[in-house]
Design a protein around this nucleic acid. Structure first.
Length: 723
DNA sequence: ATGGACAATGTTTTT
DNA sequence: CATTGTCCAT
């Protein structure tokens, strides 16, 4: 196969590795997607493995699509039958097929994060717990962590009283999901792992089928994912994983890069292949990246090198505040585009938190320049979009209580909280779900339950039930689009949204956008549409055909590359985020996040530091990101000196374990604290108002009676502390 | 049952 | 500050 000639020796040995487990440690830009796709092509084209017997898993749909199209390019129709998809989608498919072994039916719905929060709230209500004391988000995070660790409610470890509470909520939460015939994201993995573990016939079936398994972004797997892969590979043991611990940025979601080490333990005979050559970035960018990541302890050092050339210095730019930062970025882009040094689509602007996109968007809008923003919930999180999806979900699976309560009164049709509660109570009494009871009412079987509801309530419920029954009958007969149109028509959704205001028109526009997406599902049914909609990731919404700058979080940037990258908001508290300060592990992850951002850049990199940051409407001075201090000064070009910069590392040093802590150990402790009394040779006795360490000295503000406030350097002013 | 007004409360990252 | 939720008046 001639395509092998285009690979370097390491890539070749990965692509053509023989049977057995293989671990590929791939630095950024080292062509790992290429290796994965070429290996699939090699297995099919040269080894003669049937596509049907190969499984390749990724984390995002975008990555899956990318691989799919590259495999297509290499093999064309010969690739037909290959299983290639995200972890979640692959698991969903297995679960639908094997539902008979599971506590839900194969038309289960997938609850998104909003729904999940709703279920937690409901569980709190059911258990009479105060949501003020136990915030649903925090409880949900604990539940999610447990699931990622493969712990069902019964096995939830209880050490504190809070654990006890979480355990009860978790139990109720699972009950509620099952009643609705629903699963959450974590369940997709959890149930699949459980299925493969507990049902040997099923495990055998899949493990026999998948002669070769390939896993992308292996460092981001959690225990559930690791376990299910292990089971799937249990017969043939041909498991080929690609990852980079330095790019592990999802620990908060249960990902454990130690799975890389676990892999080496579980498969001691695994071949390990290191890909270090970078095909993406200029050397200057790689040097900065290495300077930053080398400060992390306990890592395999990778020497990133490229043949692309040394490249320009990285630009470090300070601005007065985040407003000005946004203006600077947009101006710079406009000017580079104006001078024809780059195309608008070459730029990406990356930030730590989503909230930071706002000022940037405003700056673009202000200059009337287009941009695109990565973020799915910007669309799928909209009320109107969620409503329409909920209608479809309800038609698909009437047991879905969450969707039911969402749409039963939107638009208002006289079924308020009271009526809904009555419906639920009565349904429970006769062992039906609310949706099933509604259907029964709608199909004319209403008289049997007439006594259960007040006249008006009964009428409204019956009317809605009849609508639902009509949609339900259509589900199997017509494409999703037709059903959707019928629903919109039946409930008068357009009138409900379009109130003549700009906002109303926009909302209806969003519904039409969803309609366009549904229109693509002709071959595939409603179930497929709902599943895809539930499993879209932020990255998936990225449209790369449009030639405009991209705004995205550092997390969303993983796996992407851009000619020119701006990383903004480089101050302590934002890039290492405050919430990571007291946790060394989290701190290391912040550093990796910065590293991921840096290594997205192909040609030029701009690091922007706002000296003041507005939070809650107020502007506050900030310190620059501590990570910047690790960048050797000769690698950067500084701009916008609004204040004296603290020195960057004077040269590149390889003392990875000697953390940049010397600054802290050398740092002086303040000798004077506010309120203490001091004696000055000239001004007499005074009281210390404040004191701070600056450079190598202590600066003390002292108030002297009859003299006023004086600012003194402790080393010069012969102050004496009075006891 | 519905909608408006005010209060509280909160900001990490997302399949 | 901006969103979200809760309470109250219609």
């Amino acid at each position: 196969m001639d395509f092998l000639a285009e690979l370097n020796p390491q890539q070749q040995s990965a692509v053509m590795a023989g049977e057995g487990p293989v671990l590929v440690l791939a630095g950024p830009g080292s062509g790992k997607t290429r290796v994965l796709t070429q290996r699939i092509a090699y297995l099919i084209g040269a080894v003669g493995i049937r596509p049907y017997n190969i499984l390749a898993v990724t984390f995002t749909n975008k990555a899956a699509r990318e691989m799919e199209s590259r495999v297509q390019d290499l093999l064309g129709a010969r690739a037909h039958g290959l299983t290639l998809g995200t972890f979640h989608a692959t698991c969903a498919r297995i679960l639908r097929r094997e539902a008979e072994h599971l506590p839900f039916k194969s038309n289960f719905v997938i609850f998104d994060s909003d729904d999940q929060l709703g279920v937690v709230k409901q569980a709190l209500v059911d258990l009479n717990l105060d949501p003020k004391r136990y915030t649903p988000q925090a409880i949900h995070a604990s539940i999610s962590n447990a699931k990622n660790d493969l712990r069902l409610p019964d096995a939830y470890p209880v050490q504190t009283y809070r654990d006890e509470v979480v355990k009860r909520v978790y139990t109720r939460y699972q009950e509620l999901l099952l009643v609705s015939n629903g699963v959450d994201f974590d369940d997709l993995l959890l149930w699949t792992a459980y299925l493969l573990e507990e049902v040997p016939t099923v495990r055998e079936k899949y493990a026999r089928r998948y002669e070769h398994i390939l896993v992308d972004e292996f460092q981001d797997t959690n225990l559930a994912q690791y376990t299910l892969i292990r089971h799937l590979a249990s017969v043939h043991k041909n498991i080929f994983v690609v990852g980079d611990s330095d790019q592990s940025i999802y620990a908060w979601r249960g990902a454990d890069y130690r799975n890389v080490m676990r892999f080496e333990q579980d498969y001691p005979k695994a071949q390990v292949i290191l890909l270090e050559q970078n095909y993406r970035s200029m050397q200057s960018i790689l040097n900065v990246a290495m300077a930053v990541i080398d400060r992390n302890p306990y890592r395999t050092v990778k020497r990133l090198f490229t043949q692309r050339g040394s490249g320009e210095k990285i630009v470090l730019h300070e601005t007065y505040d985040d407003r000005e930062e946004a203006v600077y970025v947009v101006d710079m882009i406009a000017s580079l585009v104006g001078r024809q040094q780059a195309r608008p689509g070459d730029f990406a602007i990356m930030y730590r938190t989503n909230a930071q996109s706002r000022l940037l968007e405003e700056a673009f809008l202000h200059r009337n320049l287009p941009y695109k923003l990565v973020g799915a919930q910007r669309f799928y999180g909209r009320r109107e979009v969620k409503d329409v999806i909920a209608y479809l979900r309800l038609a698909h699976n009437p047991a879905d209580e969450i969707s039911l309560s969402r749409v039963i009164n939107a638009p208002a049709r006289g079924i308020g909280n009271k009526s809904l509660l009555a419906l639920r109570t009565h349904a429970q009494k006769i062992h039906l779900s609310s949706g099933e009871l509604l259907l029964e009412l709608g199909q004319g079987g209403g008289s049997a339950h007439a006594g259960a509801f007040a006249g008006r309530t009964h009428a409204s419920l019956t009317t809605f039930g009849a609508l639902l029954a009509g949609w339900r009958a259509m589900v199997a007969e017509v494409p999703p689009l037709v059903l959707m149109d019928r629903i919109l028509e039946d409930v008068g959704y357009r009138n409900y949204l379009d109130d003549g205001t700009e906002e109303g028109r926009e909302r209806w526009g969003n519904v039409m956008e969803l309609r366009r997406l549904a229109a693509e599902y002709i071959e595939h049914d409603l179930a497929a549409f709902l599943e895809d909609v539930a499993l879209v990731s932020d990255q998936d919404t990225l449209e790369d055909s449009v030639n405009v700058p991209t705004l995205l979080t550092l997390h969303a940037a993983k796996g992407l590359e851009f000619p020119v990258v701006f990383i903004v908001g480089l101050n302590d508290g934002t890039l290492p985020h405050v919430r990571s300060f007291d946790d060394p592990e989290a701190m290391q992850e912040e550093r990796r996040l910065f590293y991921v951002g840096i290594t997205r850049a192909k040609d030029r990199l701009y690091l922007v530091i706002p000296l003041n940051r507005s939070a809650y409407g107020y502007s506050e001075p900030t310190e620059e990101s501590r990570f910047l201090k690790d960048i050797p000064v000769d690698l950067v070009e500084e701009e916008g000196q609004l204040r004296r910069r603290s020195p960057l590392a004077s040269s590149y040093r390889h003392d990875r374990w000697e953390s940049p802590a010397p600054a802290a150990t050398r740092a002086l402790q303040p000798q004077y604290s506010p309120g203490s009394r001091v004696q000055h040779p000239v001004w007499g006795e005074g009281m210390v108002l404040s004191s701070r360490i600056q450079d190598d000295d202590e600066i003390v503000d002292v108030f002297f009676a009859g003299v006023g406030m004086k600012r003194l350097a402790a080393s010069l002013a012969r102050l004496q502390l009075k006891t």
